[in-house]
Design a protein around this nucleic acid. Structure first.
Length: 279
DNA sequence: CTCAGTGTTCAGTG
DNA sequence: TCACTGAACACTGA
């Protein structure tokens, strides 16, 4: 669940269930790949008995403000999410009985918490490309300090954005994926932006007209806003989005309008695009 | 059994 | 320094 809208959904979940509450109990998995620079025990001790003051995000990075530093910082990598036992379509017959909940604890959990109202919360990370850190001041430390603007919170004005994009020599697909340029755009969003802006993903920032760069700005804004407005629920993404048709490199894949979808590899990432309209 | 993949980082090259 | 490439990381699911 790793691009900006999905991380924003996780941020909101934490805001809903954890902000204003005290962490009563923490269990951290033994995983020195996901857990960076700290032991499970030290992580658990840093969080236990702390009040959760705020749930914050920049790009794909999520962190919690607590009533005492250090603060935990989360990145999901290619997989993972925050879950509570009360999510999902299960336990219709359950009378609040955890005994019937076969999904808890969730597979691949890396950290589990219990709050002072009894709510349980877990972060999962199946492929272990995610990271959990503990920092004194996440906004001023790496990796957050190296991030570009967050397009949901601090999208620059169109002309400013266009000037910056037009100074980039790299191919557009790679520029949009560069977290130091804009924070939170991943593979599907980059393709969606360029499809809707009708720009060939192989073009370079320096080749763009001002009007084209402003089109990318507008689509970046719209796509982030709309995806977050439906809480990153893919089934509710607008019907016309490339997103619904881009997966799997299916032969003869087409958009909702019947446009043929092609696949390229750009900067090592699979790129879905529609040659008929992306110039 | 093989391979792609909603991501990041680092070494190496030009 | 910059721009870019390829590999590595780790593991699921098709």
């Amino acid at each position: 669940m790793p691009e900006l809208p999905e991380v924003e959904r996780a941020r909101r979940l934490i805001e809903q269930v954890a902000v204003g509450r005290r962490i009563r109990h923490v269990v951290c998995a033994t995983d020195d790949i996901v857990l960076v620079g700290i032991t499970p025990g030290a992580m658990a001790r840093a969080l236990t008995d702390r009040l959760v003051v705020a749930s914050r995000r920049r790009g794909k990075q999520l962190w919690w403000e607590l009533d005492r530093r250090p603060w935990p910082l989360f990145h999901f990598g290619m997989t993972g999410q925050f879950v509570t036992p009360h999510q999902g379509p299960l336990r219709l017959a359950a009378h609040g009985k955890r005994a019937l909940d076969r999904s808890w604890p969730p597979r691949f959990w890396k950290i589990m918490l219990e709050l002072d109202d009894g709510t349980e919360l877990a972060m999962t990370n199946a492929r272990r490309l995610g990271r959990i850190r503990l920092q004194q001041d996440p906004e001023r430390e790496q990796p957050i300090a190296g991030l570009g603007f967050d397009p949901l919170y601090e999208l620059p004005p169109a002309d400013d954005f266009a000037a910056r994009l037009r100074s980039r020599k790299g191919v557009l697909k790679s520029v949009l994926l560069d977290q130091g340029f804009v924070a939170g755009v991943g593979n599907w969003m980059a393709d969606e932006i360029l499809y809707q802006a009708r720009i060939d993903p192989r073009r370079r920032g320096t080749e763009l007209t001002a009007a084209e760069a402003r089109r990318i700005h507008a689509k970046l804004r719209d796509i982030v806003v709309q995806a977050c407005a439906v809480d990153a629920d893919k089934a509710r993404f607008p019907k016309g989005w490339l997103f619904h048709h881009r997966w799997g490199k299916v032969a003869d894949a087409r958009t909702a309008k019947g446009e043929a979808i092609e696949h390229l590899e750009i900067g090592g990432r699979t790129t879905a695009w529609v040659p008929a309209i992306q110039k």
